[in-house]
Simulated scan of single mutants.
Amino acid sequence: MMDIKSKNKVSSQSIGATNRTKRYVNAVLVLLLLVTSIIACDDSDYDSDAASPALPLTIADTSVRAAGYGQYRLKTLSGTELNIAVDLSALPSVSSLAVTKTINTEVDESFGTNGVMELPISNGADTYTYDYTALVEDVDQLIGLSFTASDGSNEVTSDLTLIVTVSPRDNIPTKKWAWTGKIWVDGGNAPDLKDCEKDNFFFFNADSTVTVDYGANTAAGDCAFDGFTVYDKWYLTEDEQFFVIESHGLFDPTPVVEQYRVEKFDTDVIQMSIDIDLSVFGLSTEETFLYEYTARQK
């Protein structure tokens, strides 16, 4: 049977353990409160910065604000003209406005004068619209356009970051295009791509010329006349509705212009249709065929 001394000893040990536990819990609570306070302060500063536009920038009447003081961000395609409206009302009287271009945070020395372009503002103007066309060279780069306005004593700056992705149009010359499909639409959607055509690659070059690699299966059977068509030029109409190929015969200089209707067009696939006169074979003058080309790395 436990005596009173033993009971008191056990009781003291229990009380001591309980006190240590309370002190530990209190310390943890204080630490959590401190961390929460720090995070709350950081969030407050972050939110405050995010609400500070500096020089407000809009594109197509739309704000492209990003978090942070005077920060803006936009995803766009190469070849797109951006009309960037700069609101100068942050300064009572603007005496100068300049834009600096950076690529991956390094100043682009080829832009303007050593990377800086002075913009011609009118006296008393409260806005200025700067036109910038996203370049193919901007693709997959971190492009920065930093706008700085000054009234002679003070400066205000806003930074626009552009994330430029290659457009389907600009992508065409960067790939080789495998001939992956030919459907005779008016023939019951019958597949019409010959075996010897399945290893053909088309190169629609940046200078508008066309190069064809007929592959190993060529100059025999269904492809006996490979090379008899000389391709002169290709182009995509401005509205991207038609893909045009100009050619002539190897033994006949008569120009041939084929205007294909663009059915599907992205960076991976081009599908286009055309009507072919097959009346000589007892068919109609407008037999529709659908062609498919799939992008491959050069």
Rank of each mutant, 00 (worst) to 15 (best):
S48F: 13
E246R: 09
L33Y: 07
K182W: 00
G221H: 05
I245D: 04
I270W: 01
S52K: 15
E287F: 04
D195R: 03
K75Q: 12
V94F: 08
K176Q: 11
K9H: 13
T36H: 07
V99I: 08
S247F: 05
T211H: 06
S146D: 08
E286H: 10
V28H: 13
N114P: 00
P255E: 12
P255T: 14
L278C: 02
A149M: 06
T36D: 09
D87M: 05
K182S: 00
D199K: 07
D199E: 08
S208T: 13
V10T: 13
D47Y: 14
S78D: 11
A51F: 04
A125I: 09
V212D: 00
E109L: 15
F251G: 03
V166S: 05
D277V: 02
Q141L: 06
L74S: 00
L55N: 03
D126Y: 12
D186V: 02
Y293R: 00
D213I: 05
S110W: 05
E106K: 15
P173Q: 11
T105F: 07
T254I: 06
G115K: 02
A134M: 07
G282H: 11
N8K: 15
L142G: 05
C196G: 01
S110N: 14
I59R: 07
I270H: 01
E246C: 03
T129F: 07
V28K: 15
S93N: 13
S95H: 08
P255S: 12
D226C: 06
S96N: 12
E292V: 01
Y128H: 10
F201K: 06
G16P: 00
D108Y: 08
V30N: 08
A60P: 01
E240Y: 06
S95I: 13
V30A: 13
T100R: 13
S14H: 14
G68K: 08
D192F: 02
K175V: 02
A27N: 15
V230H: 05
L91C: 04
T237E: 07
E292G: 00
N154H: 10
S93L: 13
L250P: 00
S78F: 09
V25T: 12
S11D: 14
D199H: 03
N171V: 00
T285A: 11
K175E: 02
D170L: 08
G152A: 10
T62R: 13
D186L: 04
C196D: 04
N114C: 03
N26F: 11
V210S: 04
F225K: 15
L119G: 03
T100N: 03
C196H: 02
M1E: 10
K175I: 01
S14A: 14
D131R: 15
Y235S: 07
G215C: 06
A219P: 00
D207R: 12
F201L: 09
E286G: 02
D207A: 04
T285M: 09
G115F: 03
D151C: 06
S167A: 10
I274R: 03
S247I: 03
D151R: 07
T209Q: 09
L97Q: 04
T288L: 08
Q271K: 11
D268V: 04
S273A: 09
Q241W: 06
T133P: 01
Y260S: 01
S247N: 11
D226S: 09
E292T: 12
T288N: 10
V164G: 01
T102F: 01
V166K: 12
G215T: 05
D186E: 10
L31N: 08
